[in-house]
Amino acid sequence: MKSVKSAGATRRAAVAPADPDTGESTTYAVPALEKGLDVVEFLSAQERPLTLTGIAQALDRSPGELFRIVTVLARRGWIARLADDSYQLTAKLFELAHGYPPNKRLVDVALPVMRAISNDLGQSCHLSVADSGDQLVILAIESNGAAGVFVRTGTRYPLGTTASGRVMLAFGSEEVLAGAQEHSAVERITERPLPSDLPERLARIRARGFEEVVGEWLDAVVDICWPIFNARAEVTAVLAMPFLAIARRRVDVGAARQRAREGAEQISRALGAGDYEACLAAARGRKAAASGEDP
Rank of each mutant, 00 (worst) to 15 (best):
M1G: 12
S6I: 05
A16G: 02
T22M: 00
E24G: 02
E24W: 09
E34S: 05
K35H: 14
V40Y: 09
V40H: 14
S44A: 11
D60N: 14
D60F: 09
T71D: 14
A74P: 07
A74R: 10
W78H: 03
W78A: 03
A80W: 13
R81W: 02
D85I: 05
D85S: 15
Y87W: 13
L93F: 09
F94M: 04
E95R: 12
Y100W: 15
N103W: 02
K104C: 03
K104T: 04
K104G: 06
L106Y: 06
L111D: 05
L111V: 01
A116G: 08
A116M: 04
D120V: 00
V129W: 01
G145H: 03
G148Y: 00
G148S: 00
L159Q: 12
G160N: 14
T161G: 06
V167I: 03
G172R: 00
L177A: 10
A178D: 10
Q181F: 07
E182N: 13
E182A: 07
H183F: 01
S184H: 13
V186H: 13
V186I: 15
R192P: 00
P195L: 06
A203P: 01
A207T: 06
V214D: 13
A220T: 05
W226G: 10
P227K: 05
N230G: 14
V235Q: 09
V238G: 10
M241F: 10
G254H: 14
A256Q: 09
R259H: 14
I267L: 11
L271P: 11
G272C: 00
G274T: 05
Y276C: 03
A278I: 04
A282S: 07
R286F: 07
